[in-house]
Design a binder for these strands. Structure first.
Lengths: 160, 160
DNA sequence: GCCTGATATTTTAGGCTTGAAATATATCGC
DNA sequence: GCGATATATTTCAAGCCTAAAATATCAGGC
């Protein structure tokens, strides 16, 4: 006998499940829209790519340099991936690898002066673009949204 | 003479600007974390990729089939990209191209029965994973967050 | 019919991305 | 010191991704 509509536990999916799926789809779409727009503008205005911008952004915050593995961990991409992007940035003169320290395996990566100068220009444009692209979100909501995502990330990092 | 702290207009960036930049970074990180997790699981459990899943998901919702350009528009990726993914799905027997209609340029793409069967299995797992991965977000917040993103997308589509 | 411009798709070159294998170096136990 | 294990990075193969060029077809104007 199943007395049906009495606070079913584990019988049917929670009401929130479909909502989470919907949220994920919207999160993904929002990110793709903005990312696509940024990619186009970086290409048009600075003849560069989002991954290059990301690497330079990470290095800008650490004038003392980063290891390849730090970059990889920070950007959430694989080691091999970073190698290629940094290779191209080095051959364009925006990034340098130095092999000091006692450890001969590691290479410390940092921006060259040309890299710093270029990044500062790009960062200013990037901030304007974000302000424009996310401009339709109310400032009060920006804050709430941002806090929710921060909380998500905190929880994630505790579990992983 | 600049009488400083009097509702400056256009003098310094709005307070909300940095907040929007921060929001964007968090949006991007959240998406990357979840996307990475989904990619790994799709690979491990079904030996497939996220782009393939996305294409199959789009086709599942349209048993009557879609044009290549519909797929490309819906998934927010380039035409050429879709060609490659569909090619591989076709050679694996999960998708078929049919060339009917009067228009000899178009090709209607749809899932094969094997594709439908596979997708249904993957979709069930996918939904469980999302429920788990976004589980730390309160159900009430899921709803608000989701609505904010829907509103963002509506605004975007009006302007573009 | 034929030309012109628009539409649907594929091809191409170059860069991004991953996971796994390969290299090189470091560290620890003994 | 030596061997085993761990760490840092690069290389590799395969797939994803874009923008732009190339193909093919369609739809109108004449």
């Amino acid at each position: 006998m199943m007395n049906a509509p009495l606070s079913a536990v584990g019988q049917k999916p929670e009401r929130g499940d479909k909502q989470r799926l919907r949220l994920w789809i919207r999160l993904l779409r929002t990110t793709r829209i903005v990312e696509g727009e940024l990619r186009e503008r970086l290409k048009r205005e600075f003849d560069t790519t989002l991954p290059r911008f990301d690497v330079m952004s990470a290095l800008y915050r650490r004038p003392e340099g980063m290891l390849m593995s730090d970059l990889s961990r920070f950007l959430l991409v694989s080691n091999g991936n970073v190698t290629g992007i940094v290779d191209r940035l080095v051959s364009d003169g925006f990034v340098m690898r130095t092999k000091k320290e006692g450890d001969k395996r590691t290479s410390v990566v940092r921006l060259t002066p040309a890299g710093v100068a270029l990044f500062e220009k790009m960062a200013a444009a990037h901030e304007r673009w974000i302000t424009e692209l996310l401009g339709s979100i109310e400032t009060a909501e920006v804050h709430r949204l941002s806090e929710m995502l921060r909380a998500f990330r905190s929880n994630w990092e505790i579990d992983h």
